[in-house]
């Protein structure tokens, strides 16, 4: 089975320091990969390089076996790779519904059809589903900037699913969420993975949130891979014992 995403010797230097140092790993379709490591271990920079926000200094990224190294964020998005942000990144002046539709509209139809076609780009139903699915009921016409921190985070996550992505990179989804929402969020992610076969990468410091969700683990320290494999084998190796969150 070919990997959905494969990363080979990816390196990103800032001056002389390598924030990401020759990282290699693969994700198969349908997998849920947890990425853990202490703060400053290079988790976010690694995925900024993979998703086109930062240019890698060396190495290679392939999607479905095709090289996508250094590809711009919007082109990655068109190939079905979506992401969420550690701190919610929204369009604060737009309504919740418009945030969601904006997140999905560019994958629909042609540029021209987006002018002459329906104003909602045919995504009103999908947006409504997402609103219900991520517990944002009643907030559709609220301005996103006026939501609570937790609601903003949920909206940020919901936006990633508007374009029916194949691969979603979730950057610390549990941060900023209160306890009562974490469990339902985990259930929903599991449900999407089971129903649509969506592949996930979850970067997270909160190990409890990850524990019963991920199928594989990647442990980073100082920009290097220190452990990689399915959950049991990584836990058995004891590499996580020293992790301080």
């Amino acid at each position: 089975m070919t990997a959905l995403l494969s990363v080979n010797n990816l390196t990103r230097r800032f001056g002389r320091r390598a924030a990401v140092d020759a990282v290699s790993f693969e994700i198969a379709p349908g997998e849920i990969l947890g990425v853990v490591g202490p703060g400053g271990s290079g988790k976010s920079i690694l995925f900024d390089c993979i998703l086109g926000r930062l240019a890698p200094s060396a190495g290679e990224v392939r999607l479905d076996g095709r090289p996508v190294t250094g590809m711009r964020a919007r082109d990655m998005s068109r190939l079905g790779v979506a992401r969420t942000f550690q701190r919610a990144q929204l369009f604060p002046q737009l309504t919740v519904r418009d945030n969601l539709i904006a997140a999905g509209q560019e994958r629909r139809g042609s540029l021209w059809s987006r002018l002459v076609g329906p104003p909602d780009a045919g995504l009103a139903d999908t947006a409504a589903e997402m609103i219900a699915f991520f517990r944002l009921d009643g907030l559709a016409v609220q301005t996103a900037g006026n939501l609570s921190e937790g609601q903003q985070k949920l909206l940020d996550i919901a936006m990633a699913f508007m374009a029916r992505p194949r691969l979603v990179v979730l950057d610390e989804p549990a941060t900023d969420l209160d306890e009562t929402v974490r469990e339902p969020l985990r259930e929903r992610l599991r449900a999407i993975n089971a129903q649509a076969g969506t592949t996930f990468v979850i970067i997270e410091r909160n190990l409890d949130f990850m524990a019963s969700l991920v199928t594989h683990l990647l442990v980073l320290a100082e920009g290097r891979v220190v452990a990689l494999g399915d959950v049991q084998s990584v836990l058995a190796s004891g590499m996580l014992a020293s992790d301080d969150g």
């Binding site: 998005s77 604060p92 002046q93 904006a102 997140a103």
Partner: peptide, 28 residues
Amino acid sequence: WLRRSPWGRAFAALRANPLRAEAVGIDT
């Protein structure tokens, strides 16, 4: 009409948060 269309939404989105707009595939 333009303003209500997905184009108008894209204008507003890229103005509000260009980083997020690129991440959701909007060619800013």
